[in-house]
Design a protein around this nucleic acid. Structure first.
Lengths: 239, 239
DNA sequence: AGATAACTGTGTCTTAAGGATACTGTTTCC
DNA sequence: GGAAACAGTATCCTTAAGACACAGTTATCT
Protein backbone atom coordinates (compact mmCIF):
# COMPACT_ATOMS: atom_id res chain seq x y z
CA UNK A 1 0.00 0.00 0.00
CA UNK A 2 1.28 3.43 -0.90
CA UNK A 3 1.30 5.78 2.05
CA UNK A 4 2.07 9.43 2.31
CA UNK A 5 5.48 8.61 3.71
CA UNK A 6 6.10 5.89 1.15
CA UNK A 7 8.12 6.23 -1.98
CA UNK A 8 5.13 7.31 -4.05
CA UNK A 9 4.43 10.16 -1.70
CA UNK A 10 7.71 11.80 -2.42
CA UNK A 11 8.12 13.93 -5.45
CA UNK A 12 5.01 14.93 -7.28
CA UNK A 13 1.65 13.48 -8.08
CA UNK A 14 0.84 12.06 -4.66
CA UNK A 15 -2.20 14.27 -4.37
CA UNK A 16 -3.57 13.32 -7.73
CA UNK A 17 -3.90 9.72 -6.73
CA UNK A 18 -5.84 10.57 -3.60
CA UNK A 19 -3.07 9.93 -1.17
CA UNK A 20 -2.77 12.12 1.87
CA UNK A 21 -5.60 11.36 4.25
CA UNK A 22 -7.70 14.35 5.14
CA UNK A 23 -6.65 16.06 8.35
CA UNK A 24 -9.14 16.62 11.11
CA UNK A 25 -7.81 19.48 13.18
CA UNK A 26 -7.16 23.00 12.10
CA UNK A 27 -9.17 25.46 10.04
CA UNK A 28 -11.25 24.24 7.13
CA UNK A 29 -9.34 24.50 3.87
CA UNK A 30 -10.79 27.25 1.71
CA UNK A 31 -9.14 25.98 -1.46
CA UNK A 32 -8.74 22.62 -3.12
CA UNK A 33 -6.38 21.05 -5.61
CA UNK A 34 -9.20 20.93 -8.11
CA UNK A 35 -10.11 24.60 -7.80
CA UNK A 36 -6.46 25.55 -8.19
CA UNK A 37 -5.98 23.30 -11.19
CA UNK A 38 -9.17 24.59 -12.75
CA UNK A 39 -8.02 28.19 -12.45
CA UNK A 40 -4.63 27.30 -13.89
CA UNK A 41 -6.17 25.44 -16.82
CA UNK A 42 -8.34 28.42 -17.63
CA UNK A 43 -5.33 30.68 -17.71
CA UNK A 44 -3.42 28.27 -19.92
CA UNK A 45 -6.36 27.87 -22.27
CA UNK A 46 -6.85 31.55 -22.78
CA UNK A 47 -3.36 33.02 -22.47
CA UNK A 48 -1.00 30.13 -22.95
CA UNK A 49 0.95 28.00 -20.54
CA UNK A 50 3.57 30.70 -20.08
CA UNK A 51 1.01 32.87 -18.33
CA UNK A 52 0.55 30.25 -15.63
CA UNK A 53 2.59 31.26 -12.62
CA UNK A 54 1.92 30.62 -8.97
CA UNK A 55 1.42 34.33 -8.54
CA UNK A 56 -1.08 34.55 -11.34
CA UNK A 57 -3.10 31.52 -10.32
CA UNK A 58 -3.25 32.75 -6.75
CA UNK A 59 -4.33 36.18 -7.89
CA UNK A 60 -7.18 34.76 -9.94
CA UNK A 61 -8.37 32.90 -6.87
CA UNK A 62 -7.94 35.92 -4.58
CA UNK A 63 -5.34 34.20 -2.47
CA UNK A 64 -1.65 34.68 -1.92
CA UNK A 65 0.92 32.75 -3.82
CA UNK A 66 2.19 30.79 -0.86
CA UNK A 67 -1.23 29.52 0.12
CA UNK A 68 -1.22 27.34 -2.99
CA UNK A 69 1.68 25.36 -1.60
CA UNK A 70 -0.67 23.93 1.03
CA UNK A 71 -2.37 22.02 -1.79
CA UNK A 72 0.39 21.53 -4.32
CA UNK A 73 3.93 20.36 -3.66
CA UNK A 74 5.34 22.58 -6.40
CA UNK A 75 4.75 23.76 -9.88
CA UNK A 76 5.45 20.34 -11.36
CA UNK A 77 2.57 18.92 -9.41
CA UNK A 78 0.33 21.78 -10.44
CA UNK A 79 1.12 21.04 -14.05
CA UNK A 80 0.41 17.37 -13.47
CA UNK A 81 -2.93 18.25 -11.93
CA UNK A 82 -3.68 20.52 -14.87
CA UNK A 83 -2.94 17.74 -17.31
CA UNK A 84 -5.16 15.25 -15.60
CA UNK A 85 -7.97 17.76 -15.31
CA UNK A 86 -7.67 18.85 -18.93
CA UNK A 87 -7.47 15.33 -20.28
CA UNK A 88 -10.59 14.39 -18.37
CA UNK A 89 -12.24 11.07 -17.83
CA UNK A 90 -12.01 8.65 -20.74
CA UNK A 91 -15.06 7.19 -22.42
CA UNK A 92 -16.36 3.68 -22.05
CA UNK A 93 -14.47 1.42 -24.48
CA UNK A 94 -17.61 -0.58 -25.18
CA UNK A 95 -19.75 2.30 -26.35
CA UNK A 96 -17.11 4.72 -27.55
CA UNK A 97 -18.12 4.22 -31.20
CA UNK A 98 -21.83 3.82 -30.66
CA UNK A 99 -23.01 0.42 -31.81
CA UNK A 100 -19.81 -0.45 -33.67
CA UNK A 101 -18.03 -3.37 -32.07
CA UNK A 102 -14.88 -3.92 -34.13
CA UNK A 103 -11.56 -2.71 -32.81
CA UNK A 104 -10.95 -0.38 -35.73
CA UNK A 105 -13.97 1.92 -35.47
CA UNK A 106 -13.58 1.99 -31.73
CA UNK A 107 -9.91 2.93 -31.76
CA UNK A 108 -10.73 5.52 -34.43
CA UNK A 109 -13.32 7.00 -32.12
CA UNK A 110 -10.76 6.97 -29.32
CA UNK A 111 -8.28 8.88 -31.44
CA UNK A 112 -10.86 11.45 -32.49
CA UNK A 113 -12.01 12.02 -28.93
CA UNK A 114 -8.42 12.37 -27.78
CA UNK A 115 -7.81 14.84 -30.58
CA UNK A 116 -10.80 16.98 -29.65
CA UNK A 117 -9.73 17.00 -26.03
CA UNK A 118 -6.19 18.04 -26.87
CA UNK A 119 -7.28 20.70 -29.32
CA UNK A 120 -9.24 22.31 -26.51
CA UNK A 121 -6.00 22.63 -24.54
CA UNK A 122 -3.22 23.50 -26.99
CA UNK A 123 -0.66 23.66 -24.21
CA UNK A 124 -0.88 19.94 -23.56
CA UNK A 125 1.75 18.82 -26.10
CA UNK A 126 4.44 21.06 -24.69
CA UNK A 127 3.79 19.96 -21.16
CA UNK A 128 3.51 16.21 -21.61
CA UNK A 129 7.04 15.71 -22.86
CA UNK A 130 9.78 14.02 -20.95
CA UNK A 131 9.83 11.81 -17.93
CA UNK A 132 6.84 12.27 -15.71
CA UNK A 133 4.21 10.39 -13.80
CA UNK A 134 0.74 10.13 -15.27
CA UNK A 135 -2.41 10.92 -13.38
CA UNK A 136 -5.44 8.66 -13.10
CA UNK A 137 -7.31 10.12 -16.04
CA UNK A 138 -4.34 9.81 -18.32
CA UNK A 139 -3.78 6.22 -17.30
CA UNK A 140 -7.50 5.74 -17.83
CA UNK A 141 -7.21 6.78 -21.47
CA UNK A 142 -4.42 4.27 -21.92
CA UNK A 143 -6.50 1.59 -20.25
CA UNK A 144 -9.38 2.26 -22.64
CA UNK A 145 -7.11 2.05 -25.66
CA UNK A 146 -5.70 -1.26 -24.49
CA UNK A 147 -9.15 -2.60 -23.77
CA UNK A 148 -10.17 -1.75 -27.31
CA UNK A 149 -7.08 -3.32 -28.84
CA UNK A 150 -7.22 -6.45 -26.73
CA UNK A 151 -8.93 -8.56 -29.38
CA UNK A 152 -7.18 -6.97 -32.33
CA UNK A 153 -4.80 -9.86 -32.84
CA UNK A 154 -1.73 -7.76 -32.13
CA UNK A 155 0.83 -8.81 -29.58
CA UNK A 156 0.87 -6.95 -26.26
CA UNK A 157 3.99 -5.06 -27.27
CA UNK A 158 2.41 -4.07 -30.56
CA UNK A 159 -0.75 -2.95 -28.81
CA UNK A 160 1.23 -0.67 -26.54
CA UNK A 161 3.26 0.57 -29.46
CA UNK A 162 0.17 1.33 -31.48
CA UNK A 163 -1.51 3.28 -28.69
CA UNK A 164 1.67 5.22 -28.16
CA UNK A 165 1.85 5.92 -31.87
CA UNK A 166 -1.72 7.14 -32.05
CA UNK A 167 -1.27 9.42 -29.09
CA UNK A 168 1.86 10.78 -30.72
CA UNK A 169 -0.05 11.28 -33.93
CA UNK A 170 -2.48 13.59 -32.15
CA UNK A 171 0.43 15.54 -30.77
CA UNK A 172 2.03 15.77 -34.19
CA UNK A 173 -1.11 16.98 -35.93
CA UNK A 174 -2.14 19.61 -33.42
CA UNK A 175 -3.09 22.72 -35.33
CA UNK A 176 -0.80 24.79 -33.14
CA UNK A 177 2.23 22.63 -33.89
CA UNK A 178 4.47 23.35 -36.83
CA UNK A 179 7.20 20.94 -35.83
CA UNK A 180 8.64 19.34 -38.92
CA UNK A 181 5.85 20.61 -41.07
CA UNK A 182 5.48 22.92 -44.00
CA UNK A 183 8.08 25.65 -43.89
CA UNK A 184 5.74 28.19 -45.38
CA UNK A 185 2.92 28.25 -42.86
CA UNK A 186 4.33 31.25 -41.08
CA UNK A 187 4.84 34.37 -43.19
CA UNK A 188 8.35 34.78 -41.86
CA UNK A 189 9.31 31.22 -42.73
CA UNK A 190 7.77 31.62 -46.16
CA UNK A 191 9.80 34.74 -46.78
CA UNK A 192 12.99 32.95 -45.78
CA UNK A 193 12.12 30.05 -48.06
CA UNK A 194 11.58 32.42 -50.97
CA UNK A 195 14.97 34.00 -50.34
CA UNK A 196 16.68 30.62 -50.47
CA UNK A 197 14.66 29.03 -53.22
CA UNK A 198 17.79 27.68 -54.85
CA UNK A 199 18.76 25.67 -51.78
CA UNK A 200 15.30 24.12 -51.41
CA UNK A 201 13.89 23.54 -54.88
CA UNK A 202 11.41 20.83 -53.94
CA UNK A 203 9.90 22.76 -51.08
CA UNK A 204 9.75 25.87 -53.21
CA UNK A 205 7.85 23.98 -55.88
CA UNK A 206 5.48 22.56 -53.28
CA UNK A 207 4.85 25.97 -51.81
CA UNK A 208 4.14 27.38 -55.23
CA UNK A 209 1.80 24.57 -56.24
CA UNK A 210 -0.65 24.25 -53.36
CA UNK A 211 -0.93 27.27 -51.18
CA UNK A 212 -3.67 26.66 -48.68
CA UNK A 213 -5.15 23.19 -48.48
CA UNK A 214 -2.02 21.32 -47.50
CA UNK A 215 -2.68 21.77 -43.83
CA UNK A 216 -6.03 20.17 -43.31
CA UNK A 217 -6.79 16.49 -43.20
CA UNK A 218 -3.41 15.42 -41.93
CA UNK A 219 -4.87 13.78 -38.89
CA UNK A 220 -7.43 11.68 -40.73
CA UNK A 221 -4.93 10.81 -43.42
CA UNK A 222 -2.41 9.62 -40.88
CA UNK A 223 -4.98 7.73 -38.90
CA UNK A 224 -6.08 5.88 -41.98
CA UNK A 225 -2.52 5.11 -43.01
CA UNK A 226 -1.58 3.75 -39.62
CA UNK A 227 -4.63 1.55 -39.21
CA UNK A 228 -4.40 0.34 -42.79
CA UNK A 229 -0.86 -0.69 -42.05
CA UNK A 230 -1.97 -2.57 -38.98
CA UNK A 231 -4.65 -4.40 -40.94
CA UNK A 232 -2.15 -5.37 -43.58
CA UNK A 233 0.14 -6.73 -40.90
CA UNK A 234 -2.69 -8.79 -39.43
CA UNK A 235 -3.76 -10.03 -42.85
CA UNK A 236 -0.25 -11.17 -43.68
CA UNK A 237 0.03 -12.90 -40.36
CA UNK A 238 -3.20 -14.84 -40.68
CA UNK A 239 -2.22 -16.02 -44.15
CA UNK B 1 15.56 40.26 -50.35
CA UNK B 2 15.49 39.93 -46.60
CA UNK B 3 17.53 42.57 -44.90
CA UNK B 4 18.45 43.03 -41.32
CA UNK B 5 15.89 45.76 -40.99
CA UNK B 6 13.27 43.77 -42.84
CA UNK B 7 10.55 41.72 -41.26
CA UNK B 8 12.71 38.62 -41.10
CA UNK B 9 15.36 40.43 -39.12
CA UNK B 10 13.03 41.09 -36.25
CA UNK B 11 12.43 38.45 -33.70
CA UNK B 12 14.71 35.48 -33.71
CA UNK B 13 16.58 33.41 -36.23
CA UNK B 14 17.98 36.20 -38.34
CA UNK B 15 21.52 35.13 -37.53
CA UNK B 16 20.92 31.52 -38.40
CA UNK B 17 20.12 32.37 -41.96
CA UNK B 18 23.27 34.37 -42.40
CA UNK B 19 21.70 37.75 -42.28
CA UNK B 20 23.58 40.58 -40.61
CA UNK B 21 26.55 41.52 -42.74
CA UNK B 22 29.88 41.33 -40.96
CA UNK B 23 31.02 44.67 -39.56
CA UNK B 24 34.41 46.08 -40.39
CA UNK B 25 35.28 48.52 -37.66
CA UNK B 26 35.80 47.78 -34.01
CA UNK B 27 37.63 45.01 -32.21
CA UNK B 28 37.68 41.52 -33.60
CA UNK B 29 34.91 39.38 -32.15
CA UNK B 30 36.35 36.75 -29.85
CA UNK B 31 33.23 34.62 -29.92
CA UNK B 32 30.87 33.38 -32.59
CA UNK B 33 27.32 32.13 -32.76
CA UNK B 34 28.60 28.69 -33.56
CA UNK B 35 30.97 28.49 -30.61
CA UNK B 36 28.21 29.62 -28.30
CA UNK B 37 25.71 27.17 -29.72
CA UNK B 38 28.26 24.38 -29.51
CA UNK B 39 28.91 25.05 -25.84
CA UNK B 40 25.19 25.18 -25.15
CA UNK B 41 24.56 21.92 -26.98
CA UNK B 42 27.26 20.21 -24.99
CA UNK B 43 25.67 21.33 -21.73
CA UNK B 44 22.25 20.17 -22.89
CA UNK B 45 23.59 16.82 -24.02
CA UNK B 46 25.31 16.06 -20.76
CA UNK B 47 23.16 17.78 -18.13
CA UNK B 48 19.84 18.39 -19.79
CA UNK B 49 18.30 21.44 -21.36
CA UNK B 50 17.40 22.89 -17.97
CA UNK B 51 21.10 23.36 -17.24
CA UNK B 52 21.45 25.69 -20.22
CA UNK B 53 21.35 29.25 -18.96
CA UNK B 54 23.07 32.30 -20.35
CA UNK B 55 25.17 32.40 -17.23
CA UNK B 56 26.21 28.80 -17.55
CA UNK B 57 27.05 28.97 -21.24
CA UNK B 58 29.07 32.13 -20.72
CA UNK B 59 30.92 30.55 -17.81
CA UNK B 60 31.90 27.53 -19.88
CA UNK B 61 33.30 29.88 -22.51
CA UNK B 62 35.06 32.06 -19.93
CA UNK B 63 33.04 35.12 -20.83
CA UNK B 64 30.41 37.15 -19.06
CA UNK B 65 26.76 36.53 -19.56
CA UNK B 66 26.07 39.79 -21.31
CA UNK B 67 28.75 39.27 -23.91
CA UNK B 68 26.65 36.52 -25.43
CA UNK B 69 24.01 39.04 -26.36
CA UNK B 70 26.39 40.47 -28.96
CA UNK B 71 25.90 37.24 -30.91
CA UNK B 72 22.43 36.10 -29.92
CA UNK B 73 19.31 38.22 -29.73
CA UNK B 74 17.96 36.27 -26.78
CA UNK B 75 17.58 32.83 -25.38
CA UNK B 76 15.03 31.84 -28.00
CA UNK B 77 17.56 32.45 -30.70
CA UNK B 78 20.19 30.52 -28.80
CA UNK B 79 17.82 27.58 -28.61
CA UNK B 80 17.12 27.90 -32.32
CA UNK B 81 20.84 27.87 -33.05
CA UNK B 82 21.26 24.83 -30.81
CA UNK B 83 18.53 22.99 -32.68
CA UNK B 84 20.01 23.69 -36.06
CA UNK B 85 23.47 22.72 -34.90
CA UNK B 86 22.27 19.52 -33.25
CA UNK B 87 20.12 18.47 -36.17
CA UNK B 88 23.04 18.91 -38.51
CA UNK B 89 23.22 18.81 -42.25
CA UNK B 90 20.91 16.31 -43.93
CA UNK B 91 22.14 13.55 -46.18
CA UNK B 92 21.90 13.43 -49.93
CA UNK B 93 18.48 12.07 -50.89
CA UNK B 94 19.97 10.17 -53.83
CA UNK B 95 22.48 8.15 -51.85
CA UNK B 96 20.84 8.09 -48.45
CA UNK B 97 20.06 4.38 -48.73
CA UNK B 98 23.17 3.32 -50.61
CA UNK B 99 22.26 1.91 -53.98
CA UNK B 100 18.57 1.55 -53.26
CA UNK B 101 16.50 3.81 -55.47
CA UNK B 102 12.88 3.25 -54.45
CA UNK B 103 11.16 5.80 -52.27
CA UNK B 104 10.48 3.34 -49.47
CA UNK B 105 14.02 2.26 -48.58
CA UNK B 106 15.19 5.82 -48.92
CA UNK B 107 12.54 7.29 -46.64
CA UNK B 108 13.25 4.47 -44.20
CA UNK B 109 16.89 5.46 -44.19
CA UNK B 110 15.85 9.07 -43.66
CA UNK B 111 13.76 8.11 -40.65
CA UNK B 112 16.55 6.04 -39.15
CA UNK B 113 19.11 8.79 -39.60
CA UNK B 114 16.75 11.31 -38.09
CA UNK B 115 16.18 8.96 -35.18
CA UNK B 116 19.89 8.51 -34.53
CA UNK B 117 20.42 12.26 -34.64
CA UNK B 118 17.62 12.93 -32.22
CA UNK B 119 18.66 10.20 -29.82
CA UNK B 120 22.03 11.91 -29.53
CA UNK B 121 20.25 15.03 -28.30
CA UNK B 122 17.37 13.94 -26.08
CA UNK B 123 16.41 17.54 -25.36
CA UNK B 124 15.30 18.12 -28.95
CA UNK B 125 11.70 16.94 -28.58
CA UNK B 126 10.93 19.29 -25.72
CA UNK B 127 12.40 22.24 -27.51
CA UNK B 128 10.91 21.80 -30.96
CA UNK B 129 7.30 22.14 -29.88
CA UNK B 130 5.07 25.05 -30.65
CA UNK B 131 5.29 27.87 -33.10
CA UNK B 132 8.79 28.65 -34.16
CA UNK B 133 10.95 29.34 -37.17
CA UNK B 134 13.14 26.56 -38.53
CA UNK B 135 16.80 26.93 -39.30
CA UNK B 136 18.47 25.98 -42.56
CA UNK B 137 19.47 22.49 -41.49
CA UNK B 138 16.01 21.67 -40.29
CA UNK B 139 14.45 22.92 -43.51
CA UNK B 140 17.11 20.88 -45.29
CA UNK B 141 15.89 17.68 -43.68
CA UNK B 142 12.38 18.48 -44.81
CA UNK B 143 13.63 19.21 -48.30
CA UNK B 144 15.35 15.83 -48.44
CA UNK B 145 12.22 14.02 -47.30
CA UNK B 146 10.15 15.77 -49.95
CA UNK B 147 12.72 15.01 -52.61
CA UNK B 148 12.53 11.34 -51.69
CA UNK B 149 8.74 11.28 -51.69
CA UNK B 150 8.39 13.20 -54.93
CA UNK B 151 7.88 10.15 -57.10
CA UNK B 152 5.96 8.13 -54.52
CA UNK B 153 2.60 8.73 -56.17
CA UNK B 154 1.22 10.60 -53.19
CA UNK B 155 -0.34 14.01 -53.55
CA UNK B 156 1.69 17.00 -52.35
CA UNK B 157 -0.51 17.33 -49.27
CA UNK B 158 -0.05 13.66 -48.48
CA UNK B 159 3.69 13.91 -48.94
CA UNK B 160 3.86 16.72 -46.45
CA UNK B 161 1.57 14.90 -44.09
CA UNK B 162 3.66 11.77 -44.28
CA UNK B 163 6.93 13.55 -43.57
CA UNK B 164 5.30 15.31 -40.67
CA UNK B 165 4.03 12.00 -39.39
CA UNK B 166 7.40 10.32 -39.65
CA UNK B 167 9.10 13.16 -37.82
CA UNK B 168 6.47 12.94 -35.15
CA UNK B 169 7.02 9.21 -34.94
CA UNK B 170 10.65 9.78 -34.04
CA UNK B 171 9.60 12.19 -31.35
CA UNK B 172 7.07 9.74 -30.01
CA UNK B 173 9.47 6.83 -29.85
CA UNK B 174 12.37 8.62 -28.23
CA UNK B 175 13.69 6.45 -25.45
CA UNK B 176 13.48 9.36 -23.03
CA UNK B 177 9.82 9.98 -23.73
CA UNK B 178 7.12 8.25 -21.76
CA UNK B 179 4.26 10.28 -23.12
CA UNK B 180 1.24 8.07 -23.51
CA UNK B 181 3.29 4.96 -23.08
CA UNK B 182 3.41 2.07 -20.69
CA UNK B 183 2.43 3.18 -17.23
CA UNK B 184 4.85 0.82 -15.59
CA UNK B 185 8.19 1.93 -17.01
CA UNK B 186 8.97 4.07 -14.00
CA UNK B 187 9.04 2.29 -10.66
CA UNK B 188 6.85 4.94 -9.13
CA UNK B 189 4.24 4.62 -11.83
CA UNK B 190 4.36 0.85 -11.57
CA UNK B 191 3.73 1.04 -7.85
CA UNK B 192 0.74 3.32 -8.39
CA UNK B 193 -0.63 0.96 -11.01
CA UNK B 194 -0.31 -1.97 -8.63
CA UNK B 195 -2.20 -0.06 -5.96
CA UNK B 196 -5.06 0.64 -8.35
CA UNK B 197 -5.14 -2.67 -10.17
CA UNK B 198 -8.92 -2.81 -9.92
CA UNK B 199 -9.36 0.42 -11.84
CA UNK B 200 -7.04 -0.66 -14.65
CA UNK B 201 -7.45 -4.37 -15.20
CA UNK B 202 -6.19 -4.49 -18.76
CA UNK B 203 -3.01 -2.55 -18.03
CA UNK B 204 -2.41 -4.63 -14.93
CA UNK B 205 -2.65 -7.80 -16.98
CA UNK B 206 -0.30 -6.37 -19.60
CA UNK B 207 2.21 -5.37 -16.96
CA UNK B 208 2.06 -8.82 -15.43
CA UNK B 209 2.44 -10.62 -18.76
CA UNK B 210 5.43 -8.97 -20.41
CA UNK B 211 7.71 -7.14 -18.08
CA UNK B 212 10.68 -5.94 -20.04
CA UNK B 213 10.59 -6.34 -23.79
CA UNK B 214 7.58 -4.15 -24.51
CA UNK B 215 9.70 -1.07 -24.91
CA UNK B 216 12.04 -1.97 -27.72
CA UNK B 217 11.15 -2.10 -31.36
CA UNK B 218 8.39 0.48 -31.22
CA UNK B 219 10.11 2.65 -33.75
CA UNK B 220 10.64 0.00 -36.37
CA UNK B 221 7.18 -1.40 -35.79
CA UNK B 222 5.58 1.98 -36.28
CA UNK B 223 7.70 2.75 -39.31
CA UNK B 224 6.63 -0.47 -40.94
CA UNK B 225 2.99 0.07 -40.12
CA UNK B 226 2.97 3.58 -41.51
CA UNK B 227 4.72 2.74 -44.75
CA UNK B 228 2.63 -0.40 -45.22
CA UNK B 229 -0.42 1.78 -44.89
CA UNK B 230 0.91 4.15 -47.51
CA UNK B 231 1.58 1.32 -49.92
CA UNK B 232 -1.88 -0.04 -49.43
CA UNK B 233 -3.30 3.38 -50.19
CA UNK B 234 -1.26 3.58 -53.38
CA UNK B 235 -2.21 0.06 -54.40
CA UNK B 236 -5.90 0.79 -53.95
CA UNK B 237 -5.57 3.97 -55.92
CA UNK B 238 -3.82 2.38 -58.88
CA UNK B 239 -6.47 -0.34 -59.08
C1' DA C 1 -13.15 24.05 30.26
C1' DG C 2 -8.66 24.98 29.09
C1' DA C 3 -4.33 23.70 27.20
C1' DT C 4 -2.20 21.87 23.22
C1' DA C 5 -1.25 20.04 18.91
C1' DA C 6 -2.35 20.39 14.09
C1' DC C 7 -3.52 22.97 10.53
C1' DT C 8 -4.52 27.21 7.15
C1' DG C 9 -3.26 31.35 5.09
C1' DT C 10 0.15 35.42 5.08
C1' DG C 11 4.44 38.30 4.94
C1' DT C 12 9.15 38.33 4.15
C1' DC C 13 13.42 36.69 2.30
C1' DT C 14 16.47 34.12 -0.90
C1' DT C 15 18.07 32.47 -5.21
C1' DA C 16 18.29 32.18 -10.02
C1' DA C 17 16.87 33.48 -14.39
C1' DG C 18 16.47 36.77 -18.64
C1' DG C 19 17.39 41.02 -20.13
C1' DA C 20 18.17 46.56 -20.39
C1' DT C 21 21.48 50.11 -20.13
C1' DA C 22 25.46 52.67 -19.49
C1' DC C 23 30.27 52.28 -19.53
C1' DT C 24 35.43 51.27 -20.94
C1' DG C 25 38.53 49.92 -24.18
C1' DT C 26 39.71 48.78 -29.19
C1' DT C 27 39.85 48.95 -34.13
C1' DT C 28 39.24 50.98 -38.64
C1' DC C 29 37.76 54.47 -41.84
C1' DC C 30 37.60 59.42 -43.23
C1' DG D 1 44.72 61.82 -35.93
C1' DG D 2 40.03 62.16 -34.73
C1' DA D 3 35.56 60.01 -34.74
C1' DA D 4 32.47 56.42 -35.55
C1' DA D 5 31.52 51.67 -34.76
C1' DC D 6 32.19 47.88 -32.41
C1' DA D 7 33.45 44.17 -28.28
C1' DG D 8 33.20 42.91 -23.70
C1' DT D 9 31.91 44.32 -18.82
C1' DA D 10 29.55 45.94 -14.55
C1' DT D 11 25.46 47.12 -12.60
C1' DC D 12 20.61 47.25 -12.19
C1' DC D 13 15.72 45.69 -12.87
C1' DT D 14 11.96 42.34 -13.17
C1' DT D 15 9.86 38.04 -12.60
C1' DA D 16 9.79 33.53 -11.17
C1' DA D 17 9.90 29.44 -7.67
C1' DG D 18 10.23 28.34 -3.26
C1' DA D 19 11.94 28.30 2.04
C1' DC D 20 10.67 29.79 6.46
C1' DA D 21 8.72 31.84 10.38
C1' DC D 22 4.56 33.67 12.00
C1' DA D 23 -0.53 34.70 13.40
C1' DG D 24 -4.96 33.02 13.60
C1' DT D 25 -8.21 28.81 13.82
C1' DT D 26 -10.03 24.34 15.07
C1' DA D 27 -10.43 19.73 17.03
C1' DT D 28 -8.62 16.59 20.47
C1' DC D 29 -6.85 15.23 25.06
C1' DT D 30 -6.43 15.86 29.98
Amino acid sequence: MVTDSGSAGDGTIALLWGLREGPTRGPKPLLSLERIARAAVQIADTEGIAAVSMQRVAHDLDFTKMSLYRYVAGKDELIAAMIDLAVGEPSDPATIAGDATGWRPRIEAWVRLLGETWEAHPWLPGVTMGERVMGPNEVGWTEVAQAILQDSGLTPAERMGLARMLGGHIRTTMSASTAGTQPWTSPLQAEILRDHADRFPVLTALAAAGDAPLECGDREFGLRVILDGVERLLAERSA
